[in-house]
């Protein structure tokens, strides 16, 4: 599931100037693919402003997301942005992997999340992800846990 959804949605960047920019960049494939509207991007950023950087789910990895308000999510989807240089989220949390999640409703995306959880629960998966530099390699790694 996760690997299928991520197909064509993986991006690599050297660095970004701010965590806001990181979220915007990471969401571009979803905007282009018609999964989300611009408002959803703003909502994700606003979410961090309001509730703190709790979307940093483990050190180094963030899962930007927000509620689907006013149909800002058209179609469930997920994208990945990998940064060469980590970007600092509030409270000094450094992040270099962003799995950006857009969920139509509160249930439809659960297998995506389940796969993501299987991925992250693996030992040294983070080190492995650090080393991979192409979408193909990353999707292969994800398929091993699905």
């Amino acid at each position: 599931m996760l690997s299928q959804h991520l197909k064509g949605n993986v991006q690599f960047l050297n660095s970004v100037n701010s965590w806001e920019e990181a979220i915007k960049e990471s969401a571009t494939p979803l905007s282009k693919g018609g999964n989300i509207t611009e408002k959803y991007v703003d909502d994700m950023i606003q979410n961090v402003h309001e509730n703190g950087p709790y979307i940093v789910i483990v050190p180094g990895i963030a899962m930007p997301h927000a509620q689907n308000k006013d149909n800002s999510v058209v179609k469930t989807g997920v994208s990945l942005l990998k940064l060469e240089e980590p970007v600092a989220f509030p409270e000094g949390k450094e992040v270099n992997l962003l799995f950006t999640l857009a969920a139509e409703d509160t249930t439809g995306h659960l297998d995506l999340i389940s796969d993501l959880s299987s991925l992250l629960i693996e030992d040294d998966v983070q080190e492995k992800l650090e080393k991979l530099n192409s979408e193909e390699e990353i999707l292969d790694l994800i398929q091993t846990v699905e």
Binding site: N47, Y54, N68, L101, T106, L110, I113, L116, S117
Partner: peptide
């Protein structure tokens, strides 16, 4: 979590697996 869709779901799934 805030929306009840993202991080809480991730936490719950992971916890169930454990």
């Amino acid at each position: 979590c805030d929306a009840g869709a993202g991080s809480s779901a991730l936490g719950a799934t992971t916890f169930r697996k454990k």
